[in-house]
């Protein structure tokens, strides 16, 4: 399959090249975010980016380059696996981070969870006390 640079073929090549470069830039953006954001939870936002949009663009560029229809379902399944797993791991890490106080309170403009957490902790402490006798 020699690249004859005429018409549609060339455009598909250009489009996939753009996708690849933008997808790679998403990874770079995540790295910049990891280095520059102040606390764990802000860094997590940066980390989800190459895993969702970056992978989408790169898989799309594979699909464009292969030029056969049967790769698209495969790529879609790969991307959907990613979509299903990324939020779960982000939630687990984020929850652990919040509970172990890995965030800078002074950077939060409002925190509507703190009161709830404290109430639950107080209730748990009371129940522990009564349970012990």
């Amino acid at each position: 399959m020699s690249p004859d640079s005429t018409g549609l073929d060339a455009w598909v090549d250009v489009l996939s090249a753009v996708f690849m470069i933008v997808g790679a830039t998403m990874s770079l953006g995540a790295a910049i975010g990891l280095l520059r954001f102040p606390d764990l939870l802000s860094r997590m936002h940066a980390a989800t980016k190459p895993q969702v949009l970056g992978l989408f663009l790169l898989l799309a560029s594979i699909g464009l380059q292969m030029r056969t229809w049967w790769v698209w379902p495969v790529l879609l399944v790969a991307w959907i696996f990613q979509l299903l797993t990324v939020p779960v791991s982000a939630h687990m890490v984020g929850r652990a981070g919040y509970r172990t106080k890995h965030l800078h309170r002074e950077l939060l403009t409002s925190d509507e969870l703190e009161a709830v957490v404290q109430k639950a902790a107080a209730k748990a402490a009371r129940e522990d006390g009564s349970g012990d006798g």
Binding site: M26, G29, P38, K49, L108
Partner: peptide, 17 residues
């Protein structure tokens, strides 16, 4: 987010809603 990471960086403000 890319713009925020480059321009704002450590001075970003967050919230839990």
């Amino acid at each position: 987010l890319l713009y925020l990471a480059v321009s704002r960086g450590p001075r970003v403000k967050n919230a839990v809603v």
